[in-house]
């Protein structure tokens, strides 16, 4: 029983593949760089996509206004459970795993020491 708990913990905590969230983060920034804001919006989590626009704006309008642009290559990707953090040369992106795959919950994030990142796009 104890070994089962330990194995579960190890599986849940460590043996995870960071490729999928890294690819989503890459596609998100590639869409922004190509000015395909609608495609980028489709990669946002529902909560983030809903919160992002001001009244009268679409999600794509809001992303366009933020001028996020290209973020460069991926430098690291870390996954814990259903959450991930992908660092690119020019941005840090947070993602959550849904039944339909990984979605961006926060982007355009700047570190603030041990306080939460300050993100231009967040839920």
């Amino acid at each position: 029983m104890l070994l089962a708990v330990l194995s579960t913990a190890l599986i849940a905590g460590c043996a995870v593949d960071a490729t999928a969230p890294a690819r989503t983060a890459e596609r998100f920034h590639a869409a922004l760089a190509a000015h395909q804001e609608d495609a980028a919006c489709a990669l946002l989590s529902q909560q983030t996509a809903e919160k992002l626009p001001d009244p009268g704006q679409t999600c794509a309008d809001a992303l366009r206004e933020l001028k996020l642009g290209a973020a460069g290559p991926i430098t690291s990707a870390r996954v814990w459970g259903d959450d991930a953090q992908v660092r690119l040369a020019g941005d840090t992106v947070f993602l959550h795993r849904y039944s339909g795959g990984w979605r961006v919950t926060a982007a355009s994030c700047r570190p603030r020491g041990d306080r939460p990142y300050d993100c231009g796009v967040e839920n």
Binding site: G13, R78, W80, F94, C109, Y117
Partner: peptide, 16 residues
């Protein structure tokens, strides 16, 4: 081991 996984998942949710 389980704690660090659970704690880190929460930290990522909190954008940390």
């Amino acid at each position: 081991v389980a704690g660090v996984a659970s704690y880190n998942s929460e930290r990522l949710l909190d954008l940390r």
